[in-house]
Computed example of a mutant assay.
Amino acid sequence: MKLAIYQIANRIGMHPRELLRAVREGEVSGDVPAGDSPAKQAWVDLLSLRNYIQWLYEQEKLDETRYLKAIRQLEAIRRG
């Protein structure tokens, strides 16, 4: 499932630029169009993002509260 980065980033506690960087570096599946203002066209894959959040938590780069908030938001989106 594709999600627009500008719609999901703040809901999961990440800055959109942080998520854009993760997509550009291949840590998360998605697409960031070339140009100065990719905000409305950039997207990320829901499952890939969930795995990335889990990996960040396992690497102790996310605290438990931020991790649980992100997972809750992703599950709510998945359920529709």
Rank of each mutant, 00 (worst) to 15 (best):
M1V: 05
M1E: 07
L3Q: 00
A4Y: 10
I5P: 01
I5H: 00
Y6D: 03
Y6N: 03
Y6H: 04
Y6A: 02
Q7H: 13
Q7M: 12
Q7E: 15
I8D: 04
A9H: 00
A9K: 00
N10W: 11
N10H: 14
R11I: 07
R11M: 13
I12W: 00
I12R: 01
G13A: 05
M14A: 09
H15D: 13
H15V: 03
H15Q: 08
P16Q: 01
P16T: 01
P16H: 04
P16K: 02
R17N: 12
R17C: 04
E18D: 14
E18H: 13
E18G: 13
L19D: 01
L19I: 01
L20S: 00
L20E: 04
V23Y: 00
V23I: 00
V23Q: 00
V23K: 00
R24P: 06
R24V: 07
E25W: 01
G26H: 00
G26Q: 01
G26S: 01
E27F: 08
V28M: 11
V28T: 10
V28F: 06
V28S: 08
V28K: 04
S29F: 09
S29Q: 13
S29R: 12
G30Y: 04
G30D: 05
D31N: 15
D31L: 14
D31V: 13
D31Y: 15
V32F: 01
P33V: 02
P33Q: 03
A34C: 03
A34S: 09
A34M: 03
G35W: 02
G35I: 02
D36S: 11
D36W: 08
D36H: 08
S37H: 12
S37L: 03
P38N: 00
K40R: 12
Q41V: 02
Q41S: 13
Q41K: 12
Q41H: 09
A42F: 03
A42W: 02
W43Q: 10
W43A: 06
V44W: 07
D45H: 11
L46D: 04
L46P: 03
L46Y: 02
L47D: 15
L47S: 13
L47R: 09
L47Y: 06
S48K: 07
S48Y: 06
S48R: 07
S48W: 05
L49M: 12
R50V: 09
R50W: 07
N51L: 13
Y52R: 09
I53P: 02
Q54K: 11
Q54I: 08
W55G: 06
W55E: 15
L56M: 14
L56Q: 14
L56G: 04
Y57P: 00
Y57R: 11
E58F: 03
Q59R: 14
E60G: 02
E60Q: 12
E60M: 06
K61R: 15
L62I: 03
L62R: 04
L62P: 05
D63T: 04
D63N: 15
E64H: 14
E64N: 14
E64K: 15
E64C: 11
T65L: 13
T65R: 12
R66G: 01
R66V: 00
L68Y: 08
L68T: 09
K69D: 11
K69L: 13
K69Q: 14
A70Y: 03
R72F: 09
L74H: 05
L74G: 02
A76I: 10
I77V: 15
I77G: 05
I77K: 09
R79C: 05
R79V: 11
R79Q: 14
G80W: 06
G80C: 05
G80R: 10
